[in-house]
């Protein structure tokens, strides 16, 4: 009896271990997926490193060429493209928005998760509801507003409207809820700390993992913003996506230069991604479970 049942148990354990093993087919599938993911990025570099004469050849070029830096130089050297300015503008807009979103979202998330006040649930519901509203809906009056206050063509027009988002508040609330024990806040209060002091020295440090992920997300999102920027900015003071569109529309005859532009616009994001990839993945997956 005992012998038999022990054997069954061993078999079950073996089988369950095997259950989660990756077969060679799994690896092949995943490697194929990664190749598909990476190929357009690689090919972007191929064209960016070639001459224009290579761009239209058959079979299409598949190997890196030697003109990458020369082409990049032409992108930055092109007075009409304003590419350097676009990079600086995007870096400013993306960092300011990221920091501001993190700060205000943490503050509001903390209030929603840990402070008690009248109308809290209703107010939180409103925030969740705003997440459903597409931004594009409002760009016509928003543009009219910008004209009124003379912000068209100015960088702040693509920063100020996005300084805090419903998504950010909601995310920070979810995190604060489970990451900060109430006793911690209570203890600080007994010590006589003001609410802001509690936030700044107790809550915010504890929120840091979520804050970092939110900051990175927001940075990428602002970096990729296009439609509103296209409507409100001007060609001589663009952000990166705008400058790319401009490059694509104007230098259609010079695709090795246009592709160098796409590479320059993508590399900062890729660097952020490679450095913080683990955190970004963690953030997406954690967020997925909570939502």
């Amino acid at each position: 009896m005992t012998v038999l049942s022990r054997r069954t148990v061993t078999r079950t354990v073996e089988r369950s271990a095997r259950l989660w093993e990756a077969s060679p087919l799994t690896y092949i599938t995943l490697i194929f997926a990664i190749v598909l993911s990476a190929f357009p990025l690689y090919w972007m570099l191929v064209i960016a490193s070639r001459t224009n004469q290579d761009v239209g050849s058959i079979p299409p070029p598949l190997v890196l060429g030697q003109h990458l830096f020369e082409n990049i130089g032409r992108v930055f050297g092109n007075q009409n493209a304003h590419f350097a300015k676009a990079l600086v503008n995007s870096a400013i807009a993306s960092s300011v928005v990221a920091i501001s979103v993190v700060f205000f979202s943490s503050l509001a998330g903390f209030a929603f998760a840990k402070l008690r006040f009248r109308g809290r649930n209703a107010l939180l519901l409103i925030i969740v509801a705003t997440m459903m509203v597409p931004v594009q809906m409002g760009i016509i009056p928003l543009y009219m507003l910008m004209v009124k206050i003379h912000w068209t063509g100015q960088l702040q027009a693509v920063i100020v409207p996005f300084l805090v988002t419903g998504f950010g508040v909601f995310m920070m609330r979810q995190y604060a809820e489970q990451a900060i024990p109430d006793e911690l806040i209570e203890a600080a209060r007994v010590d006589g700390a003001s609410t802001f002091r509690i936030f700044w020295s107790v809550v915010f440090p504890a929120l840091r993992p979520a804050a970092a992920v939110l900051a990175l997300f927001q940075f990428m999102q602002t970096w990729n913003e296009f439609m509103w920027n296209f409507a409100v900015l001007t060609p001589d003071n663009p952000t990166v996506q705008y400058a790319l569109a401009q490059l694509n529309g104007t230098y259609y005859a010079d695709y090795s230069m246009v592709f160098s532009g796409t590479a320059i616009a993508t590399v900062p994001l890729l660097v952020v991604f490679i450095v913080f990839g683990r955190q970004i993945i963690g953030g997406i997956m954690e967020g997925a479970i909570k939502a």
Binding site: P40, M220, F226, V240, Q241, V258, F259, F273, G277
Partner: peptide, 19 residues
């Protein structure tokens, strides 16, 4: 592997269109 499948998400959106 996880980063590999996620990489396209961090590409500039206009760049995707152009490429």
């Amino acid at each position: 592997f996880r980063m590999g499948v996620l990489a396209p998400m961090v590409t500039s959106v206009a760049a995707v269109g152009i490429v």
